[in-house]
Design a protein around this nucleic acid. Structure first.
Lengths: 237, 237
DNA sequence: AATAATAGGACTGTCCGACAATTGTGCCAC
DNA sequence: GTGGCACAATTGTCGGACAGTCCTATTATT
């Protein structure tokens, strides 16, 4: 079973300081927007050296719990932005050598759901963003990297339009993984550009008309297409 | 449109150092398991002070790119473990005040997919884990916190059995959010325990028999039940 | 009076040097 | 080869220091 004793964790001071501050933030004692005391002040309060405090706040800054707006000196409490979070997750996934199939299955689970909810909850702003991504793809489809970015932006826009932060945050890391795969696919499959363009149009239209099932279905077909394209690129494997 | 000039980013030294090291890790120049040079050595190489290096490696340590096994002094390159990643994401979500509905929709997207793939790819080990979680729930269903943990373990086991790291890593943060919601639900809905137990049994059975569609369906019903239970608890809203 | 310039004060980013505690290592005895 | 021991290397933490930048209140200017 389990050991009789837990290894006693004698965390270094910088970690304890970090935990203490994190506790206050998560417990909302320190609220979003509040400015953190100065480093020297914290050092005094915790009774540790300023260097130690700095290592601690570095942790929280990385996790997105603390941040500062450009050109501002003092740190304030912030809510982790999806961008910061998702980049960490996608890097983790990249380091774990995820396969295209794994990515595809995850997209197949999330994107149609996102599209469905987007069709229910999208606002005018969302439609604008969706169309912007779609038009970017049409405009720059010759420039492959830009086109890939446009596809990613499209998925991001759908996820945001879903009005569901959990889905959006779960979906975000997938985009970073999708980009490199798409880069090859889009160049090596002749019909890819036309199919993507058509799919996006159908999806946006369904979302616009609030046809939830249709949005889901078109999105499913769209994602399925990626797999077909990928198989074409790697035919024989 | 966009501004003519980007704000020039004059990243502080510790961030540049962190990026430089991260680059080597992601680019596999530094490979998993390799020991990092000592702090003093890094300071010399980068031409900065050791304190600066320390702030930099703190970043990477937090992100799970560096770590050390208990009682080891030197840092080594590690691959981010899902536990570390997911805790960050769930905290972010918690700070964003996600609603039960958002969580539920995300589960509704991910868990049935996980169950379906689990039915295809599960190994004997996975079945053992699934049954362990199931039995824990049966055994300790009177002890609410333990029961909740057992439910979480069950979902985790399904996600792992799916053989899809992306789905597993996307699903992990949801568990931390599910727990508190479940804590109330399980106590206030009389039939909750029996229904969860039955659902788990059906799901495990389908996974065991490799009935993919059945696994998905039972999981869907299982998740739907959570929503019904939640509505019972908050009836009137 | 309204606005612009300026002088301090407060902080952050970075550096230097230091020391105890702990871990890694090479050498020696057995 | 194994165990043990002394010594080197390394980390965690501390104190102090200083330049550059931001904030603020005061002073000078129109």
């Amino acid at each position: 079973m389990s050991d009789l004793f837990q290894p006693l964790d004698d965390d270094p001071a910088y970690r304890q300081v970090a935990n203490a501050i994190e506790f206050k933030i998560v417990g909302r004692t320190l609220r979003t927007g509040d400015a953190l005391p100065s480093e020297s002040d914290l050092a005094r309060q915790f009774g540790v050296n300023r260097s130690t405090v700095r290592e601690a706040i570095r942790e929280l800054e990385i996790q997105g719990l603390l941040g500062r707006t450009r050109g501002e000196k003092r740190l304030r409490v912030t809510r982790p932005q999806s961008k910061r979070i998702s980049s960490g997750v996608s890097r983790a996934l990249a380091l774990h050598d995820v396969t295209f199939l794994e990515l595809w299955e995850a997209m197949m689970a999330l994107e149609p759901a996102a599209a469905e909810h987007a069709a229910t909850r999208r606002t005018g702003v969302h439609l604008t963003l969706l169309n912007a991504a779609r038009e970017q793809f049409i405009q720059d489809s010759a420039n492959t990297p830009v086109a890939v970015q446009a596809v990613v932006n499209f998925f991001k826009a759908v996820a945001e339009a879903s009005g569901n932060q959990v889905i959006a945050l779960s979906q975000a890391p997938l985009n970073a993984l999708l980009a490199p795969a798409l880069l090859e696919l889009i160049d090596q499959v002749p019909q890819a550009r036309a199919r993507i363009q058509l799919a996006q149009q159908r999806i946006v239209n369904a979302i616009k008309l609030k046809k939830t099932q249709l949005a889901r279905t078109w999105m499913e077909k769209h994602i399925r297409d990626f797999k077909r394209g990928h198989e074409l690129v790697f035919q024989g494997n």
